[in-house]
Design a protein around this nucleic acid. Structure first.
Lengths: 176, 176
DNA sequence: TCATTTCCGGAAAGAAATTCGGCAAAAGGA
DNA sequence: TCCTTTTGCCGAATTTCTTTCCGGAAATGA
């Protein structure tokens, strides 16, 4: 902290800043969203209604974008994970790229800089299913190459920004 | 489906199979974990207590590993996302690899096959913070090279296995 | 200094989670 | 095959949590 003045962060949609209480509440909800407002209130030092108000506000403003259950990939029959780099021509935000979204195996789809234009996170039941998926990707128009990185072990799979409190940036964001 | 017999899936810990009702409940909870049991029950065709029993069981068995809030990275001050490939020597499940886990910027850490041994998903406030992070990674013993893929746009960030129902594998898993 | 706004806490009302039989279907034995 | 045991569901009751409401304190601004 540079000063004793609170480090706040402008929210994406509305102009309401996210203060220290909000951050601690977020941290708790990211760790475990099944806690009661009273429990969270005890931890962060607020009453249950106060916590409720803040959560409601953060949901409305989009700071909390969703809350969802995390499923054990093993239990759900998809233990095979890979990162797939796709190199293609003429894919700038095209509908062709969007087709990748429709594959149920695709868990994430990012457009990136570097020696490929897209990175996919793909989950299948086994190597066989992965091979079939890759064949489908190659069949898409414009795809020049793919490179797959098969995950052997996942050592960390933090639910996005688990440590909201600690990692708060000192650096202000660019406006807009 | 190959037969009218139900496609079931052995759970990771206990021997209880996950049936069609469980899958639909999981699908609902992955999409939105703030629904009431009554709502889910209406959708899947069960009573609230029945849904509750199943969710409780799936939590106990580890099928539902956690439920957590998803935060808008922008609102939380970490809009800069990159996948970082790390190549290092002598990192087989070592404590040295584990050190990467302690960086708050590191959201995921996977050991992979291919031209690097580790893939990181890293989130920072900006390019500057990313550069500082990479410098720290290079300083780790054994690190030979890193390659970063800066994410321009994220088109899909499905909460793990969003489409539990549809993508259920026909292929049985290897035992154990 | 006073008015206005913001935000909290306690209490109350409303809604949901959880418990508790009872029952029916399935599973397992003899 | 018949009986027993187990499993899993439902409806109702109970407990717990969420949500609303309101008074008041602290902060904000003129």
């Amino acid at each position: 902290m540079k000063s004793n003045k609170e480090t706040v962060q402008k929210n994406s949609s509305s102009g309401r800043p996210v203060d220290a209480f909000d951050r601690r509440i977020l941290g708790e909800l990211v760790r475990n969203a099944r806690q009661t407002y009273a429990e969270i209130g005890t931890k962060v030092g607020l009453s249950a209604p106060a916590v409720h108000d803040r959560v409601k506000r953060m949901i409305a403003s989009g700071t909390i974008s969703s809350t969802n259950a995390a499923i054990d990939p093993m239990a759900v029959g998809k233990p095979f994970l890979a990162f797939v780099h796709v190199d293609a021509s003429g894919w700038g935000k095209s509908e062709r790229m969007m087709k990748l979204r429709d594959f149920p195996e695709v868990e994430e789809l990012h457009s990136v800089t570097g020696d490929c234009c897209v990175i996919l996170k793909v989950r299948t039941a086994n190597a066989d299913a992965m091979e079939r998926f890759l064949a489908q990707v190659y069949a898409l128009p414009g795809v020049r190459a793919t490179r797959s990185y098969v995950v052997l072990t996942t050592y960390l799979d933090r639910p996005v920004q688990a440590e909201v409190t600690e990692t708060w940036p000192d650096v202000p964001l660019p406006v807009g």
